[in-house]
Simulated assay, not measured.
Amino acid sequence: MEEQCIRVVVSGRVQGVNFRASAQEQAKSKGISGYAKNLSNGGVEIVACGDESAIEWLVEWLHKGPAQARVDEVKVESIPYKPRKEFSVK
Rank of each mutant, 00 (worst) to 15 (best):
K75G: 01
S11C: 11
A21H: 11
K75F: 03
G65Y: 00
Q15G: 02
K90N: 10
A69G: 07
V47A: 05
V59L: 06
H63I: 01
C5G: 05
V76H: 01
Q26F: 13
V76D: 00
Q26L: 12
R84C: 08
F19M: 07
F19N: 01
K28P: 01
K85H: 09
Y35W: 10
G65L: 03
Q68H: 11
E73Q: 13
G31D: 06
L39R: 15
I55S: 01
K82G: 12
G65K: 00
G43I: 01
G12Q: 01
E2M: 09
K82I: 15
G16Y: 03
K82M: 14
R7H: 04
V76W: 00
P66S: 05
S11K: 14
R70V: 14
V47C: 02
S11D: 09
E3T: 11
R70Q: 12
A48I: 00
E73H: 13
V47T: 06
V17W: 01
S33A: 15
N41T: 09
Q24Y: 05
I6V: 14
G34I: 12
I32H: 05
A67I: 10
W57P: 03
E25P: 02
K30E: 08
G43H: 06
E86P: 01
E77V: 00
P66N: 05
A27E: 03
A67N: 07
V14E: 04
E77M: 02
G16P: 02
G42F: 07
V8W: 00
K30W: 14
Q4C: 10
I32F: 03
C49Y: 06
I6D: 00
R13D: 07
G31L: 05
